[in-house]
Design a protein around this nucleic acid. Structure first.
Lengths: 150, 150
DNA sequence: CGAAACTAGTTCGCGGCACGAACTTACGCA
DNA sequence: TGCGTAAGTTCGTGCCGCGAACTAGTTTCG
């Protein structure tokens, strides 16, 4: 099926709108986008680096640097993996957990405001379609343990 | 209306999926995301810097740097504004126009693939809802002359 | 058992990106 | 004519992320 000429570009623009709003909400919690994505993944349980890379779409050096910067903020920490001394896991600190939970709640409450111009029926339809696209079976914070993007 | 807990976070994840795919398509045209957004705005007609800043969501120094890097690639060029010697406009070079057109066509054809798992009816519904959210009155390349994001 | 192959993660070098403050140059208006 | 404002650039800074190369540790195989 050939795409209508605008749909692909409209999806890009939609993503830009969402990203800008998300960036604003992150800034209110004193987080950058990348730090926010990392924190939302690890705030409920530690993750290994080799698990986080695919989830965040990052190569190893990029992930390592991001963990460095987030750790320097006191929001996460690296721990040795007992089963393999080469590996380490990343977990949130109490502060990181608190900020991550607050951001998640804020995103849940406020980000949907960008579709406020839809009718309630259309908005519910959009919710279902978005869930279908991303394959959510249950809405969980920041897609923890979700499938990596294609 | 209170948001369902997952919708906001699902929108964020959707935007991540779209951005990753867009990044891949840009890379195939040897463009970064930011350069692609700039090029798509100016490829059909020159824009002033004070017009581009709000469209791209960039402060002046950030826009100036982006234009520098894109100009260095030979894709855009700055021209003096006749009405105001402080101001300048940014236009695409022939090469920039060619690459911008190719990217636009590629995004139109291939980016909608991320919703391939929807039925044709659901997909058409999503097209309409996305258009309603972003306020498109007519699909035009890369939102040239579109409203800036809120 | 030991060497080779492979793995997990880090460091280096590099370049893209973007903002606040400060700056230069130009315009508009009283 | 001088002041206030505007348009854009430069500076300093930090975030971000990748390929190549590296270190340390694990696994495989003869």
């Amino acid at each position: 099926m050939t795409a209508t000429p605008g749909f692909g570009n409209n999806l890009v623009y939609l993503s830009v709108l969402i990203q800008r709003r998300f960036t604003q909400l992150c800034a209110e919690h004193d987080l950058t986008n990348a730090q926010a994505h990392l924190l939302c993944l690890v705030k409920d349980r530690p993750h290994g680096m080799s698990e986080l890379g695919p989830l965040l779409g990052l190569a190893k050096p990029g992930l390592s640097g991001l963990v460095d910067r987030t750790e320097r903020r006191g929001l996460v920490q690296r721990c040795s993996a007992e089963h393999d001394r080469r590996a380490c896991t990343v977990s949130s600190t109490p502060l990181g957990k608190e900020i991550g939970d607050a951001l998640y709640a804020d995103v849940a409450a406020r980000l949907p405001g960008i579709v406020d111009q839809l009718s309630p029926a259309d908005r519910r339809l959009l919710e279902e379609l978005v869930a279908a696209v991303i394959g959510a079976t249950a809405s969980d914070p920041c897609r923890a343990d979700g499938d990596p993007a294609p």
